[in-house]
Design a protein around this nucleic acid. Structure first.
Length: 450
DNA sequence: TTGACTCAACATCCTTTGCTACAA
DNA sequence: TTGTAGGTTTCCATGTTGAGTCA
């Protein structure tokens, strides 16, 4: 058995020498070159080191980094770091929004002392991470994304840019941190993790599981969940204690009529077509059918109308008026599912509004005024759910939302940050109102997300 | 450099029963 | 006998984002 040489080539590991019988390695039938996916590097290295004949490793040639940090980890952060280390320096930490996931990643970087790539979903987060890493380590931090393509030993990238660059830089980093790692389950994004050779991997998220089951892919690429702390584990001590109040509102007669008509059309179609909806994938079937079947299309459009009615019910707006009145002295974020409603509320209550149509500059301005206390309320569609540094609030009002557990957790997280400089005793409890239209499908939707 | 635009990707979208094949 | 898991192939609508292009 002759010695084997491992090297990195365009997002794969090239295996030269006698590669027969090595698990994970397959021969490319056209070129005859034996290869393994780059993300298998750690596993392959372990396998080969136990094999007679030894092997030559030319995959990574990385400088040592001397990184230090002043952070003192909290007990749960230390536990999380320990758990990740015990898992072989691979795996996911599931920690709530506001619990200091970044700090744990920084501690891991210090411990490893190797070039590191941090991958994040938005340009906003890219800026935040880069600023924080620059301040902490006092080294220049590279950026892939937001119009920049500059590599450094410590680099932050968006998922999109990482996808475009992964083949080129796949052997430049020994450690990769995936922030909001649930995104990695996306069909395209998963390639980012596949093309990198980095043996050490850390995923951070508040909600690991995906309704489509793709978290299993993430487990394969990054590792399993090594440590998990829920909002309830940390509430009261490191996060604000909270209450959730569900308020049911009745549809007006006119809304009820429109709702029943539309919902009826949808349900009738299901019954007559023999379709049963037991899961999200069944719904997908219906969507596909609607491409060719006009009745299926009409059923879906009717469902859309029913959703509009229940989510934007008039009495929710009236209820919001009462809530805003009750919380005059509080900092309130109002969440909706539709942009139309955002603008309606903005006009009626004179609330600063943020949707995907709001430009970056205006958005920054609103959030900074909210931070400074010049605004005490904002209304937003889904924009503030994730990936934005949203200032502290203590009351959230969910006027409408999806059945997504992730969306709900993120929205709740927006009010749970302990008050600044006083993390020992957050001033009062945080409060989340959930407005639900009575006797509509929204009751089920609201149950699902909890 | 900025802003407006397009494009592609991602995420959610869900009813209350009942058929079939296969494993325990 | 009794549970229980179970596959299709592109895609009705809305919201959001990043990258790329062009003026």
């Amino acid at each position: 058995m002759s010695a084997v040489t491992l090297s990195y080539e365009n997002g794969t590991l090239r295996v030269d020498g006698d590669a027969s019988g090595i698990p994970l390695v397959e021969e490319d039938p056209r070129s005859g070159v034996a290869r393994a996916p780059a993300y298998r590097y750690a596993a392959l290295r372990d396998l080969l080191s136990q094999r007679a004949g030894g092997f030559e490793d030319r995959v990574l040639d990385l400088p040592d980094l001397d990184l230090t940090t002043d952070y003192d980890l909290r007990a749960y952060q230390r536990d999380a770091l320990d758990a990740w280390r015990d898992a072989g320096k691979r795996g996911v930490l599931e920690l709530p929004t506001g619990s200091g996931k970044t700090v744990v990643a920084i501690a891991a970087m210090v411990e490893l002392g190797v070039p590191t790539l941090v991958v994040v979903p938005t340009v906003d987060l890219l800026d935040q991470w880069a600023r924080e890493l620059e301040a902490e380590f006092g080294v220049p931090v590279g950026r892939f994304g937001g119009g920049e393509q500059r590599a450094e030993a410590v680099t932050v990238s968006t998922y999109d840019s990482a996808y475009l660059k992964a083949e080129d830089v796949g052997d430049d980093f020994g450690f990769v941190v995936f922030d909001e790692v649930h995104h990695l389950g996306g069909e395209g994004y998963r390639d980012v993790a596949r093309l990198l050779a980095a043996p050490f991997r850390l995923g951070l998220t508040a909600t690991f599981e995906r309704p489509d089951g793709a978290h299993e892919v993430v487990e394969e690429l990054v590792g399993s969940v090594a440590y998990r702390a829920s909002v309830d584990d940390l509430a009261g001590e490191h996060l604000a204690a909270y209450d959730i109040k569900r308020v049911e509102v009745e549809l007006t007669d006119e809304e009820r009529e429109r709702y029943e008509e539309a919902q009826g059309t949808f349900v009738d179609y299901l019954r007559s077509s023999g379709l049963s909806l037991t899961s999200g994938s069944d719904y997908q079937k219906l969507v596909m059918r609607s491409g060719s079947d006009p009745r299926a299309r009409e059923a879906l459009l009717a469902k859309q109308r029913a959703r509009d009615v229940m989510m934007n019910a008039d009495r929710k707006v009236e209820e919001l008026a009462r809530i805003l009145d009750r919380h005059r002295g509080d900092r309130v974020i109002v969440f909706t599912a539709h942009t139309d409603l955002v603008y309606r509320l903005s006009e009626r209550f004179l609330l600063p509004a943020i949707t995907s149509e709001t430009g970056a500059k205006e958005r920054r301005e609103i959030l900074s005024r909210f931070r400074e206390g010049r605004y005490s309320r904002v209304v937003a569609a889904n924009v503030l759910d994730e990936g934005v540094d949203v200032p502290d609030a203590n009351v959230a009002v969910v006027l409408s939302g999806s059945g997504s557990e992730r969306e709900f957790t993120q929205r709740l997280g927006r009010v749970l940050r302990p008050k600044e400089g006083n993390s020992e005793s957050p001033t009062g409890r945080a409060l989340l109102y959930e407005l639900v239209s009575a006797e509509t499908a929204e009751e089920r939707v609201a149950d699902r997300r909890r």
